[in-house]
Simulated scan of single mutants.
Amino acid sequence: MNQTEAPFSETDILTIPELARRLKADKSKTYDIVSIKGCPLFDIGGDRGKRVIWGDFLDWFRKNFKVAGK
């Protein structure tokens, strides 16, 4: 992490492109992930109105995806 960047907070509200950057995944893969039933995705309206709360997403992600190699 760049030393000037603030650490991630569990209460951060992210757009899908921001989430993709945190996951180090491309946007299309990230859209596939957030379309899975049960993903804590909020729709605030409009074409680009999808949001996730970082802490909620991480909890859900950890429960629904396996650690590589296990």
Rank of each mutant, 00 (worst) to 15 (best):
R21N: 12
R21S: 13
R21H: 12
R21F: 07
R22C: 10
R22W: 04
R22F: 08
L23V: 05
L23R: 08
L23F: 09
A25K: 13
A25E: 06
A25V: 01
A25P: 00
D26H: 13
D26G: 05
K27Q: 13
K27G: 07
S28K: 14
S28F: 05
S28M: 12
K29Y: 15
T30L: 08
Y31E: 13
Y31F: 12
D32R: 14
D32W: 08
D32M: 05
I33T: 05
I33M: 07
I33R: 01
V34C: 09
V34S: 06
V34Q: 08
V34H: 05
S35M: 11
S35D: 14
S35Q: 14
I36N: 05
I36L: 15
I36C: 05
K37R: 10
K37I: 00
G38Y: 09
G38T: 04
G38C: 08
G38M: 10
C39L: 08
C39K: 05
C39N: 05
C39Q: 04
C39V: 07
C39E: 06
P40W: 10
P40N: 11
L41A: 04
L41T: 06
L41K: 10
D43K: 10
D43C: 00
D43R: 05
I44L: 14
I44V: 11
I44H: 07
G45K: 05
G45V: 02
G45F: 07
G46V: 06
G46H: 08
G46K: 07
D47G: 06
D47H: 09
D47S: 10
R48F: 12
R48T: 09
R48V: 03
R48G: 03
G49R: 08
G49A: 09
G49E: 09
K50W: 07
K50M: 07
K50D: 01
R51D: 04
R51I: 03
R51E: 04
I53D: 00
I53Y: 01
W54F: 15
G55I: 03
G55N: 04
D56V: 00
D56M: 07
D56C: 03
D56Q: 13
F57P: 00
F57M: 04
F57E: 01
F57K: 02
L58A: 04
L58M: 15
L58H: 00
L58Q: 14
L58V: 15
D59R: 13
D59I: 13
D59T: 14
D59V: 13
W60E: 02
W60F: 03
W60L: 03
W60I: 01
W60A: 02
F61T: 01
F61P: 00
F61A: 04
R62H: 11
R62I: 05
R62N: 12
R62G: 03
K63D: 12
K63I: 01
N64H: 15
N64C: 09
F65K: 07
F65G: 03
F65H: 08
F65T: 02
